[in-house]
Amino acid sequence: MLDVDELCRPGLAPVSFTLAAGDCLAVRGPSGAGKTLLLRALADLDPSHGRVTWQGRERNTMSGPEWRRLVGYLPAEPGWWAETVGGHFRDWPTLIPLLTRLGLPADADRWPITRPSTGERMRLALIRALEVAPEVLLLDEPTAALDAASVSLVEQVIAERRAAGLTVIWITHDAAQGERVARRRLVVEAGQTRVEEIV
């Protein structure tokens, strides 16, 4: 279980919620209310206060890198450090089935990093985040730049991972997507946050 208790940081109202392993929490709210800041705080990329516990282990009892291998984060604009696509992955051949499912060619590892489109980059970044095998995955509008067919492919892949135990926090502006992927949602508004059931 992911237990978030009074997580505070500048630019975000205090947040508390619990999330069972394998469950998904949708996050909604107006732009600038702090949804991305919340995910960055959960991934421990920015300083924050409050208790965050995963499966009974408090975040501060482990190092930052250890925590981030458990709690993966896919930002809305993923960063790239190598010259080629393949340079961002540990073991490309084992990823080929997943790449093919998400509509990416098996030889995309040889592409220069400037070549993939925004939608392709998003799917590559998702695969890169999944390759680390995190137990929790934080998604910041992962399907915003995708066509309808790719959106449903990504949703399927995430649903399968959830069935295998992956816990997901998913920022989406699309109310219908929120209803498809989660039964509860966190509403982040300026000055307050609340968790509500999706009916």
């Binding site: 991934a43 291998r69 930002p75 960063g79 790239w80 450090w81 680390v132």
Partner: peptide, 22 residues
């Protein structure tokens, strides 16, 4: 300038030395 690239590595569990290496 390369903040996104450095943070991308941190997000994947690299330590600060390795993330800042380039």
């Amino acid at each position: 300038q390369r903040r996104a690239a450095v943070e991308a590595r941190l997000m994947l569990g690299h330590d600060r030395r390795s993330a800042c290496a380039p």
